[in-house]
Design a protein around this nucleic acid. Structure first.
Lengths: 243, 243
DNA sequence: CAGTGGTCTAGACCACGTT
DNA sequence: ACGTGGTCTAGACCACTGC
């Protein structure tokens, strides 16, 4: 691990433990450089990490302070979006029912979203995730075999993300998601136990590896009383758009 | 404007105009440093900007390439979320009806979201935004007078964001948003012309200035057939969470 | 004016991919 | 082996804030 990342982790922990309190000043960059026995530029790279995560506010002339909401931001960071399995890990019981698992050729829409040709086969996986035995989300994922291999129904009944990161040793990069509301369809009524008039929150996303290859196009549908997406935006990477 | 930001803008333009094509290599950092007559570190800071915006992919050993989707990412960046007025600027006609405009004291929920005391008065503004004469969104904003002053009903019928940035000369910083689906309420039926069974997409957000002060807590409700939120995530600032 | 963060340099070494 | 991007240094100057 690089020095500036180690320092960033240390500083994050100091905020988490209240060593640096919300609203209070951090030591100056020069003091931190002395403490960690490094240069000011390295401290600045560490502070960049905290700044990107919205944990600190830097003001030229007056110093660096711990951001308001730093504690709730830390909560969100600690359960970063890496699939439903990780989100609920330890707190709730997640079970997954694989409703469909097949390999087929992609339709034109999927070809476009995944940037693959019509001859590249894809996994088509439909899963129902339950949290504490209550239906939580209905997930339909398309993954190209050119990127993801050796996926089985058994793996799909656990965490596909863990399989990709740990077993295939691939690094997940950026994603683009569109969040919309919709009326319940037949499958929503059947599996999520939605009645007529009970809205669905749908998240459509394409997820990429860090090398830029798209590895998943999915549509996830939530009951409106169990769904919701939280987005944190900073001026640096203003990354959310209402359409 | 600092040198690295100028260079970042130049490089973004080269991607926009197709000078650097999607998937193709950029010149190496050394070549760029020579071209711009600067050091490699400055080029790297410029590339950080593009990387944060998901416009490029950097691979140790093999070089920097223009990201897939760079063109659609540019589209999104060019209409960053700065209020509905800016989003539709030039393309559609946005009109705003101010349905309620008052100054009052905040309730406990609003006090918490805006981090203000019970004695700090707030503006309470309810607005209906129409795009091309069709109802688009119903927006309920709470803003503390300790931050925003001299707001009038006339200003509210235009763009409050432009007023804050241009007239008050304040800089907008981070925001935190929660996106949910909901059933239509009385106001939705009245103003957004929703029927029973037509879902609402709701965005609740708290927006901060760059100095960390919260200046707006709002709830915006969209017709399900005219709403949607797009979110771009990168590993750097993974900033979205399903709850 | 003193102290803070922001920018920039010239050069060094390392980690990684490709050939 | 070579070229790429990643990290790091020691020092400099600038911009801004607050006393």
């Amino acid at each position: 691990m690089s020095q500036y990342k180690e320092i960033a982790t240390t500083l994050k922990n100091r905020i988490k433990t209240g060593d640096y309190e919300t609203g209070q000043h951090l030591p100056s960059q020069k003091e931190l450089a002395d403490e960690f026995g490094t240069s000011r530029v390295t401290i600045q790279k560490a502070l960049d990490e905290l700044s990107n995560a919205n944990l600190i506010l830097r003001r030229q002339g007056s110093g660096t302070t711990v951001a308001p909401n730093s504690q709730s931001t830390l909560d969100i960071l600690s359960s970063q979006y890496e699939g439903t399995t990780k989100l609920f890990e330890g707190r709730n019981k997640v079970t997954t029912q694989v409703l469909n698992f097949e390999i087929r050729l992609p339709n034109p829409h999927e070809q476009k979203r995944l940037a693959i040709s019509s001859s590249t086969p894809v996994y088509d996986v439909l899963r129902l995730r339950n949290v504490d035995k209550e239906p939580y989300e209905l997930d339909h994922s398309i993954m190209p075999l050119s990127v993801i291999q050796n996926l089985t129904e058994e793996i799909a009944s656990g965490s596909i993300y863990k399989f990709i990161e740990s077993t295939l040793n691939l690094k997940i990069g950026s994603s683009i998601r569109k969040i919309t509301a919709d009326t319940p369809q037949k499958n929503d009524q059947k599996y999520l136990k939605c009645n007529h008039g009970e809205p669905i929150l749908q998240v459509s996303q394409t997820v990429h590896l860090s090398d830029g290859r798209a590895f998943e196009y999915s549509q996830t549908r939530h009951r409106y009383d169990k769904g919701g997406v939280i987005v944190i935006n900073n001026s640096l990477s203003s990354n959310s758009l209402d359409v």
